[in-house]
Simulated assay, not measured.
Amino acid sequence: MTVSSPTPQQTNRSKPVTRKPTRQAQLRKLLSRKSGATIAQIQKAFGWQPHTVRAAISSQRKAGCVIVRSDTDTGSVYRIVDEGCDP
């Protein structure tokens, strides 16, 4: 009894490609929440240093997002108020 091995055409079926959202898209999602996000929350989500978080927020501003910072007891909270930024 001979077992035929599958040809490459049989094993490479077309699967829908689902791409992982970019870090910038994930950051926009965090900042778009009603409660916004603190530096510490963003650090925990991405494993970044504080200066990297601030640089990423700055790049969002350069992309056209209007980001406001408000001071709270837990620290500064950043929030996108106008989502006119590039995707």
Rank of each mutant, 00 (worst) to 15 (best):
T38N: 02
I80A: 03
P87E: 08
T2Y: 11
R79V: 06
R13M: 11
G84T: 01
G36E: 01
Q24A: 15
R54N: 07
A37Q: 10
T11R: 10
R33E: 15
A56Y: 09
R54V: 04
T11C: 09
T7W: 01
Q26I: 08
S32T: 09
G84R: 01
A37V: 01
L30Y: 05
V66F: 04
N12I: 07
V77F: 00
E83T: 08
L27I: 04
R23C: 09
C65T: 05
C85L: 12
Q10V: 10
Q9F: 03
A45D: 08
R23G: 14
G47A: 11
Q60I: 06
R23K: 13
R28T: 12
G64L: 01
Q26S: 12
D71A: 13
Q41A: 00
V77P: 02
R23D: 08
E83S: 10
Q26K: 11
K34F: 06
T11Q: 09
Y78C: 06
A37G: 01
I67Y: 08
T22Y: 12
P87F: 01
C85N: 09
V17A: 15
P21K: 07
P16D: 12
I39E: 15
D73K: 11
I67G: 14
S58W: 12
S4A: 13
K20S: 01
T72G: 10
R13S: 10
P8R: 14
T74R: 13
R33H: 11
Q43R: 15
L31M: 13
R28A: 08
S14I: 06
Y78W: 15
R69Y: 00
P50F: 11
S14E: 09
V17W: 08
R23L: 11
K20R: 02
Q49R: 11
A56V: 08
P8S: 12
V81L: 14
V17L: 14
R54F: 05
R69T: 12
S4H: 06
V66C: 07
R54T: 09
V17C: 03
V68W: 09
Q9G: 15
Q60E: 15
P50C: 14
L30K: 06
W48E: 02
P21Q: 10
G36H: 00
Q26F: 05
T18H: 08
A45L: 00
C85K: 04
Q49K: 08
E83Q: 11
I80R: 03
T2I: 13
V3S: 05
Q43F: 02
K34P: 03
A63E: 04
V81P: 07
S4Y: 01
R79G: 03
L31P: 00
T22S: 15
M1A: 05
T38H: 01
G84M: 01
P6Q: 13
G84I: 00
T22I: 06
S35Q: 10
S5R: 06
A25D: 12
L27M: 04
R19I: 03
R13F: 13
L27P: 00
V53M: 03
R79E: 02
D82M: 06
Q49A: 07
R79I: 02
I42A: 04
K44Q: 15
W48T: 03
S59H: 13
R61D: 02
V66E: 13
R19D: 02
R23V: 14
S76L: 05
G36Y: 02
G75C: 01
W48N: 07
T52Y: 02
T11S: 13
P6L: 14
A37L: 05
A37I: 06
